[in-house]
Lab assay of single mutants.
Amino acid sequence: HITLTNLITEETTHVVMKTDAEFVCERTLKYFLGIAGGKWVVSYFWVTQSIKERKMLNEHDFEVRGDVVNGRNHQGPKRARESQDRKIFRGLEICCYGPFTNMPTDQLEWMVQLCGASVVKELSSFTLGTGVHPIVVVQPDAWTEDNGFHAIGQMCEAPVVTREWVLDSVALYQCQELDTYLIPQIPHSHY
């Protein structure tokens, strides 16, 4: 019994991606959610070859190996599938703050939850000092008015990073160091 759908849910078992011959794909929301959820992320060749051979072929032979941004053979989907007991964002409290493009905020929040993070909706909701690490995620190029994202640091004691930190961490299924993704914050004294 196979159901085809464009939506990823808890029940989804396989995410089928358009890939090149070496099982490398573009980074899409579907790709990120498939990895975050520990699903099989496979090339569409799995479907076409299975139909051709009239049997369901082994997914291992068709698993996506990499993507056009993070590298052609990083094995993120395999790492995620085999590490669902070791979520990459466990112990983190993440607030997805401000506008985002090409990806609804609720989907970004679901993605970080699938990776083990707790989501907070407001900067004031962080449970500071409880052994949980707060992180604010923003997408600077989605902000149309002044660079308000440079002043988020005044509203909460949390590192502010770009959305790329989430996307790179999920694609590779390895929590990336914050340093290269940090957004400089204007210190309090400048006000």
Rank of each mutant, 00 (worst) to 15 (best):
T3Q: 10
T5H: 08
L7N: 15
T9L: 08
E11R: 06
V15L: 13
M17V: 11
M17N: 01
V24Y: 03
Y31A: 00
F32S: 01
G34V: 02
G34A: 08
I35R: 00
W40S: 05
Y44L: 08
F45L: 15
W46T: 00
K55R: 03
V64S: 02
V64P: 01
G66F: 00
G66S: 01
V68D: 11
V68K: 10
V69H: 08
G71V: 03
R72K: 06
H74L: 07
Q75V: 10
Q75H: 05
A80L: 00
D85C: 11
D85A: 11
D85Y: 09
R86C: 13
R86I: 07
I88Y: 01
I88L: 10
G91C: 14
L92W: 04
E93Q: 06
C95N: 05
C96L: 10
C96R: 02
C96T: 07
Y97T: 10
Y97K: 12
G98S: 09
F100I: 03
T101N: 09
N102S: 07
N102T: 04
P104L: 13
E109Y: 06
M111I: 12
M111S: 04
V112A: 12
Q113K: 14
L114F: 07
L114M: 10
A117Y: 05
V119A: 12
K121T: 06
K121M: 11
E122V: 15
E122G: 13
L123P: 12
L123M: 08
G131N: 06
V132A: 14
H133L: 15
H133R: 15
H133Y: 12
I135V: 12
V137M: 01
Q139G: 01
P140Q: 14
W143S: 09
E145R: 06
D146Q: 10
A151P: 10
G153W: 10
G153Q: 08
M155P: 14
P159A: 14
P159T: 03
V160W: 01
R163H: 04
W165Q: 01
W165G: 03
W165A: 02
W165M: 01
L167Q: 04
A171S: 14
Q176K: 10
Q176T: 03
E177Q: 15
L178E: 01
L178S: 06
Q185P: 12
Q185H: 04
I186S: 08
P187E: 03
S189A: 06
